[in-house]
Design a binder for these strands. Structure first.
Length: 369
DNA sequence: TATTCGTGGGC
DNA sequence: TGCCCAAGAAT
């Protein structure tokens, strides 16, 4: 066996995180679900979602047949909601195209929505014992440091080299090795302040030999985050119900239920705001356009009331500044043939698949903790 | 090829 | 506090 693999497997046997829930199973459904949830997500964030999801939808068939709203409600708060929509589509394809069994080749597995090369390899190795290399953030960082790779980690040529390296280093026991290198990356070879004294690869690590462990991977220059501004409508009917709008599948918060949103100009999408402008200012003109836009889009006769203080929510690639607008409704009834508008009692609203800042708003209003 | 997709932890 | 980063994939 390659010395690196042997050292990693020995270390893993003693120090690995053997107690993770998805490591107690060899069921492809369990392992696949864990891999999807863990994409760009830390273990402790995904853990409670994994348990709840499996409890509610314990099989390919259950997930395939579920209502999308239920799937998104189970995912609500975990982020990257395309994963949830793709997961359901993948389950449907496993049932219809693969007879209820996860495909047992890399080529077939990556045809499933939301399953890329690394996710497919992880499932095949763990569920079927195949010798398949992964290349996630942990493995990538370990390889970059151990081989002192200076190139831009995101460049295509670097990715290709890393995949070649990962494949060459992965032993027959890929199941154990993949988990070992992930645990090393998460526990020892961390992004900042790696604990090289406790690393089983310290004697073979080029970065450590060169005294550059802390300097790798190379830093990629970051683009400044644009700011976007929007208003959210808080309208309650005579029975105390609140109006929610289902967002389209594409775009941010796709498929989730949200407070009706409008830009200061009345448009549907948040507008870019520079430092000098005050797009969230409470002016008669802004109120006018908001009232007109929402009344038309929602088919309601609205009377705007107070505007709440500005809040913000930071995404990976932009910052959303927003204010909540209280309103009264005259008459009733929302005409919505597409069923993208619904009145919910407060408790019902909180059971829906909501984006985190919207959940926070509704929770505070209903006096919850 | 470069963007677009969430959210919370940690320093 | 602000910023970086995470068990990546789709478009």
């Amino acid at each position: 066996m390659i010395p690196i693999a042997e050292a990693l497997l020995d270390w893993y046997a003693c120090h690995g995180r053997h107690d993770l829930p998805w490591r107690q199973s060899r069921d492809p459904y369990h392992l696949w679900l864990a891999e999807i949830m863990l994409q760009q997500t830390q273990v402790e964030s995904a853990r409670p979602y994994y348990a709840r999801f499996l409890q509610a939808l314990p099989s390919w068939q259950a997930l395939a047949a579920a209502a999308q709203d239920q799937v998104l409600a189970l995912w609500s708060g975990l982020g990257y909601y395309a994963r949830a929509r793709n997961a359901q589509r993948a389950a449907q394809e496993v049932v219809t195209r693969f007879g209820g069994h996860f495909p047992n080749t890399l080529e077939a597995a990556v045809t499933l929505p939301g399953v890329g090369r690394s996710t497919a390899a992880a499932v095949l190795a763990s569920a079927f014992g195949h010798r398949q290399a992964i290349l996630d953030a942990n493995a990538r960082r370990v390889l970059i440091r151990s081989h002192a790779i200076d190139a831009d980690p995101k460049a295509a040529a670097t990715q290709q080299w890393l995949w070649t390296l990962a494949s060459a280093l992965t032993p027959e026991d890929a199941h154990g090795y993949n988990q070992a290198i992930q645990d090393l990356g998460a526990m020892i070879c961390t992004p900042r302040q790696p604990r090289c004294v406790a690393c089983p690869l310290v004697d073979r690590c080029l970065a450590h030999a060169q005294g550059r462990s802390h300097a790798l991977p190379a830093i990629v220059n970051k683009a400044p985050k644009p700011q976007r501004c929007a208003f959210f409508l808080l309208v309650v009917d005579t029975e105390g119900q609140i109006l929610l709008e289902k967002r389209p599948d594409s775009g941010i918060w796709g498929g989730l239920w949200c407070l009706p949103q409008a830009a200061p100009d009345g448009g549907a999408f948040p507008v870019l705001c520079s430092g000098t402008l005050h797009p969230l200012e409470d002016t008669p003109a802004v109120r006018q356009s908001l009232q007109a836009a929402w009344s038309r889009r929602l088919g309601l006769n609205l009377q705007l009331r107070a505007l709440e203080e500005e809040q913000q929510h930071v995404f990976t690639h932009f910052q959303l500044r927003f204010r909540c607008v209280h309103a009264r409704v005259w008459g009733s009834a929302v005409a919505d043939s597409a069923a993208t508008l619904r009145w919910h009692r407060p408790a019902d609203a909180l059971a829906q698949g909501l984006p985190t800042p919207i959940r926070r708003i509704l929770r505070e209003r209903s006096g919850g903790c």
